[in-house]
Structure formats: structure tokens, C-alpha cells
């Protein structure tokens, strides 16, 4: 297209750009500018107030020598490992149940399973604190023994994973349910005619045809787990002995509790780079599989 034509095209569609302008302004102002400014800050020793001198790559170098950075990174990966497979599996089970023709009142169930997701995470965390407190907690009272759900390094991450799975599974179940419902009934009927039982149909037809939704759930789950700060903050405060401190919570603490904006920004960009690599690997794995399928 010639430059003159482009200008005419823009002029002709100016009302479209006008419609888009609130988003573009907000995006530039609230997303792109802070992100670029954050990148700049990561090369400084900014304390959130006045001190800001350039320190080059010092903050990045410091991060790789910081034992708490590695510990929080390890904790984040462990949480991912605890949460994503279990949550995806449970969401799939819930989706199958909700998709069942024998189930009466599916609309009510669909609303009910979304309730944990729409409840504020701080409130959920308070409820889970009441449930999981070692002395006087409801779960320990029921099982009749003192288990340190929140105050032992071995169980703190399990407790966070438990709460996160409970809170988010309903949402992902609905995403998977949407994918399940788009599979044509005729495919199932043809399989049934060929003598395929329900379990075989599920593994050989339903799951392969839902691979894009399962991929979406895994990818979004991964990103959300790496971004989640509220669960850890309200439930365990990263303890005991930093056993549940995740990378993003460590970023938060450095920025807002320790007044180390520069270091915190560097940690954020390391996290950003890791998420890109992680997402890229997931995408490559998914498309590699689908290409093979073809």
C-alpha cells in the first residue's frame, strides 16, 4: 500500500481509532510506560523516594548470588508442580460431571463452582487460616491431632497449593466444559457404534479434541501461579523460614517492605524473562504435539 493510500485508509477509519483510543491511552499510560520505566529502574538503586543512581547490571548480578532468590524460585516451581497437574485433572473431572446429561440443575452447579473464584482471595485466605491453624484450627480439630499446616516448612506450600486449587478449579472447569461442549455429538455416536466404551471415548476422543483448552488452562495456570502474591501474603507471609516465599512475593517484599525498587524491578524482569521462556516451551511442546498429530 502506498503511503498516501495508508493515510486515506486511516482517515476513512478514524472513528475506529477513536473507539480504540481509550484503550490505547490506558495501555500506553498504565502498561507500557510503567513497564519501560520499571526496566530503567532495574538498572538503578532507586529506593522509592529520591535516591536513583545508575548501577548497571549490579541488581541482576546480585539476584543470581542471592540465596533467597533461588529459594523463592524453587518454591515457585514446586508450587507450580503441586498445583497445575492436580488442578487441571480436577477441573477436567468437574467438567465431565457438569457435561453429563444425567445431571439435573447444571446451571446452578455452574454458578456454585464459580463462587470460590469470584470470592476475594484475602477472604478465602482468612477462611483457610481458620481451617488450617495448628491450634484451634477446624481441620486439626476434626482429625484430632496437631498438624502444622501453616507453620512447618514441609507443609506450608502444600497448604497454599490446597487453597489455590480450591479457589481456581471451578473457573478452569468452566473453560474445559466449554471445550467439551464444542465436540460434535456425532463423533461420540460414531465411536459408540464402533463399540467404544465411555472411558475409552473420554481418553481417545474427548481429551485429544480438547487439547487446545487443556493447553490454555496449563498456560494460564502457569502464568497466574508465577504472578500470584495474595495467597502467600495472606496465608503464610512466606514462612516459616521462607519455605513458602515465592518469587513474586519476594519481589513485592523488596519493593514495598525493604524499599529496594531497583532490585525488585530487576527481579521482576528476571521473572518476566523466565515466563517468556516457559510459555515458549509450552507453546512449542503443544504445537509440536499437534503437528505430530497431523
Amino acid at each position: 500500500m502506498k503511503p498516501g493510500n495508508t493515510w486515506i485508509e486511516i482517515k476513512r477509519k478514524r472513528h475506529c481509532y477513536a473507539w480504540l483510543s481509550p484503550f490505547i491511552i490506558l495501555f500506553l499510560w498504565l502498561q507500557l510506560y510503567p513497564a519501560l520505566y520499571g526496566l530503567f529502574i532495574s538498572f538503578t538503586d532507586y529506593d522509592g523516594l529520591i535516591s536513583m543512581s545508575l548501577v548497571g547490571f549490579d541488581n541482576y548480578g546480585k539476584a543470581f548470588q542471592d540465596p533467597l532468590f533461588w529459594k523463592s524460585l524453587g518454591n515457585t516451581f514446586l508450587l507450580w508442580l503441586y498445583i497445575v497437574p492436580a488442578r487441571t485433572f480436577l477441573a477436567l473431572i468437574l467438567a465431565v460431571i457438569l457435561n453429563s446429561k444425567k445431571l439435573i440443575g447444571t446451571t446452578i452447579y455452574r454458578s456454585v463452582i464459580l463462587l470460590p473464584y469470584i470470592t476475594a482471595s484475602a477472604i478465602v485466605a482468612i477462611v483457610f487460616r481458620i481451617l488450617l491453624t495448628s491450634d484451634g484450627g477446624l481441620i486439626n480439630a476434626i482429625i484430632g491431632t496437631r498438624i502444622g499446616w501453616l507453620d512447618t516448612p514441609e507443609l506450608s506450600k502444600v497448604s497454599i497449593a490446597f487453597m489455590n486449587i480450591w479457589r481456581m478449579t471451578g473457573y478452569f472447569a468452566l473453560v474445559l466444559l466449554a471445550g467439551m461442549q464444542k465436540i460434535p455429538e456425532s463423533v461420540h455416536e460414531a465411536a459408540a457404534l464402533d463399540g467404544c466404551g465411555p472411558i475409552r471415548k473420554f481418553f481417545r476422543i474427548t481429551i485429544p479434541l480438547m487439547s487446545s483448552e487443556i493447553f490454555f488452562v496449563s498456560l494460564i495456570s502457569t502464568i497466574w501461579i508465577f504472578q500470584n502474591v495474595s495467597d502467600v501474603m495472606v496465608l503464610t507471609n512466606g514462612g516459616p523460614v521462607n519455605s513458602s516465599t515465592t518469587l513474586v512475593y519476594y519481589v513485592y517484599r523488596n519493593a514495598f517492605e525493604f524499599s529496594k525498587m531497583g532490585y525488585s524491578s530487576a527481579l521482576s524482569y528476571i521473572l518476566f524473562a523466565m515466563l517468556i521462556v516457559f510459555s515458549f516451551l509450552l507453546v512449542k511442546f503443544y504445537y509440536g504435539k499437534t503437528e505430530e498429530g497431523k
Binding site: D47, P153, G239, P240, V241, N242, R253, E257, F258, S259, K260
Partner: peptide, 21 residues
Amino acid sequence: DRRSAEIGTIISTVLGEMFLN
């Protein structure tokens, strides 16, 4: 001063590692 929050975290972590681990 402004380091005190981080100092508190360091002291708590060292005490926790000493008494628990």
C-alpha cells in the same frame, strides 16, 4: 531506619533456621 524491615526478616530467618533446622 529503612533497613529495619529487612533486618527483621534476616533475624527471623536465622532464628528459624537455627531453632527448627
